[in-house]
Design a protein around this nucleic acid. Sequence first.
RNA 1: GGGGGAUUAGCUCAUCUGGCUAGAGCGUUUGACUGGCAGUCAAAAGGUGACCGGUUCGAGUCCGGUAUUCUCCA
Length: 878
Amino acid sequence: MTSQEIRQSFLDFFASKDHKIVSSAPMVIKDDPTLMFTNAGMNQFKNIILGNDPIKYPRVANSQKCLRVSGKHNDLEEVGHDTYHHTMFEMLGNWSFGDYFKKEAIAWAWEYLTEVVKIDKDRLYVTIFEGAPEEGLERDEEAYEIWKQYVPENRIINGNKHDNFWEMGDTGPCGPCSEIHVDIRPDSERVKVDALELVNQDHPLVIEIWNNVFMQYNRKADGSLTTLPAKVIDTGMGFERLCMTLQDKTSNYDTDIFQPIIQEIGKISGKKYGEDEKVDITMRVIADHVRTIAFSIADGQLPSNAKAGYVIRRILRRAVRYGYTFLNMHEAFMCKLIDVLSEVMGDAYPELLAQKSLIEKVIKEEEEAFLRTLEHGIKLLDKNLSEMKAKGKTVLDGHVAFTLYDTFGFPLDLTELILRENGMTVDLDGFKIEMEQQKQRARNAAAMETTDWVVLKEGETRFVGYDSLETESELLRYRKVTQKNKSYYQLVFAETPFYAEMGGQVGDKGQIISGDETIDIFDTKNENNLTVHLANKLPKELDVHFVLTVNKELRKATIRNHSATHLMHEALREVLGMHVEQKGSYVSPESLRFDFSHFQKMTQEEIRQVERLTNQKIRENFPLDEFRNIPIAEAKEMGAMALFGEKYGETVRVVRFGSSTELCGGTHVQATGEIGMLRILSESSIAAGIRRIEAITGHAVEKMMDLQQDTLANVRELFNNTPDLTKAIQRSLDENAELRKQVESFMQKQISELKEKLLANAREENGVKVIRFQSDFAAETIKTLVFQINNTFSEQIKNVDSDSQSLMVVIGGLHEGKPSLTVLLSKDLVDKGYSAVNLVREGAKHIQGGGGGQPFFATAGGKNPAGLAQAIESIKLA
RNA sequence: GGGGGAUUAGCUCAUCUGGCUAGAGCGUUUGACUGGCAGUCAAAAGGUGACCGGUUCGAGUCCGGUAUUCUCCA
């Protein structure tokens, strides 16, 4: 069977058992603070399991793309070194939400594996939860009894809490699970060692392929467990492992999912898979990572230096680093793999094909940037190496290695490699200590504590903010959140006009009022589909009616920006072409930000055109045409633009202004005329193939225009209201440059003349030529004068057989009321042990100051102009 | 969200602990050698040292803030 056929057989099987087949959710998660990526098939059903969302279909199955690269499940460093770890993988799963439970789940899992894809029964082993007395949990006898009907008892293995009790997080639904393992060793091996001893022992050929989780408990913040009212079945089968098993391979990377990519890497690098262990590891790393990166970009997550984007960047860099070291790839190469990847997976995941050119560009740019980082790091390391060699050291300080890594992004293993080539090592312990401190700092900063929800009334929030900005409601639940010694409260109401941050639009601010108590709501967020109001204090009385009022001014400014974003999006497509697609959006009361795909800088003219077109749409005063609950298919028929990487429900909201039609949950103006006017402030690049526009609307445009007009008027006035301001300024600048040059050359001439005069009039004191002079030049000018005197004098004594070889110059300066002293000694005086620094300090006493410099040249400043003349005279060679 | 770094000539970067009128390589311009080009040699132009404020006799260098950017951790 091909991988394509295997995926389909799973979905067909569960469809035949009355399951609704749903599509894969995006890998990047947007509205859950506890999770950045989809790391299990159940993520998209989390809100159903938590009871925040209603159950639409009690039985569901799908194939979900997952990423395990951060947090609790982090396999990143394993990937490539063995044959079965991945960053991205596909998870085949079936779910029951309060419908069937252990009996059916086990029966169907067995049926699918043994009858549909026909895995040899003798090669299958199962585990069940052995119990955990310290938590008051008993052995999962129920699962044991069911399994007994299918599997010989000796192949049902007890598993501990770590392997066989599944928890979603620190709190929330959890329960025992039952794993199915398969032994795919050759018969010769199977005779020697019983697979029973190898289950869960990280043997590459005795592997878990399917985990069936029976969620029946809920863990609270204090660690205690309660029984879940609606029990949930959550299963996950590793698609890549299943393919390996069914295709008679011993490595996931030998299946038809990865081999085409590995072959292509071989072609590009000129190396062969299967000859050298290090090359093989590298090829597996690259084949795995390129999938992750490509799919992330397709889901709208670009590499960046923070959060989810940073994780993607790090994965890409890991691949580049391996390629750099073991395949000798010193220029971008991963971008060349997208062709073959599209061939392998494009059919199942069309987003890959649709976004192909963007993916290639982004990867290429990222690769090149990292290669530059590597080059920079190698330079820095070289510098350290030569210092170490000079000192005879052979161990690089841990903190140096850490700085290279932490500050300059230079990978530790490369540092080690380069040192090894030079017969040196790294102080790894020192490195680890620094790393631990860094992690501790970050942990402390991010530490967040939440109490359990205090539930006053069950229920869901009804959002009324599309139609009104004020409503009366009651509190459903609340909890306290503490972060960095600051705490605030999260409040959930039965009904609210507050818009929670979503789809780029910021959350509303406002107030809640009960009786004579008014509490400020400083932000509104969406958490696991609950609208959460953030307040600094808890109302005194909880079981009363509250009036919830949104800050009208801010909300109105926000909706102007949001609606304007839609109009501008359409205008961009009209001006630049249909390749323009939204890649990100941020809408606040102050301004709007819109990121979109486009491959070059917009010209001034294009920006103007977009502005004009948008403003024209604003003036048309299109009324808001809103469809709150229409099926997604119908919405698409209306021409609504759906975004890649967005998760849409069955029914969606469509917002239409004239011909601009978008899927959008945000709040908008009643008619476009309310926007007033749009002005683009900037257009810039944020990544390869992605541009960003920042713009303002309404009142903000007015304010900006006022400011600009005022500035212009002021400037014009400065130029006597000349009709051609640009020309006047240009002329003034030219004139300024010309005068500057003239003044400079005039000063040069002055200084030169003064120099000659001073040298000629120099007195002789004890065989030393001495120049004493007071001027009102600036310090910089005096410096020039003194150095010129010195230069000329050096020339003179070289050419002429002068009596005196020694020179001392003392200049007093009085510039802008501040006295200064400058002393210069010729080289021979310095050699004799005189120091200009000592002399100038001695003299500076008269002007109440201090100073310093070098032995041949020193300056000082002071506060007492009256003592200047005395100071000049006082300086004498002792 | 937190930590660390960077910002100096058109580009890539020096300038150790505050003080040798801020330097190098590449690039640009000019000149010389050559029939011309390539090349070599010589010279020149090019800097508000990101921005704002402070400490100091003196700040590119120290301190604080802002902006941009890189990087690590979560």
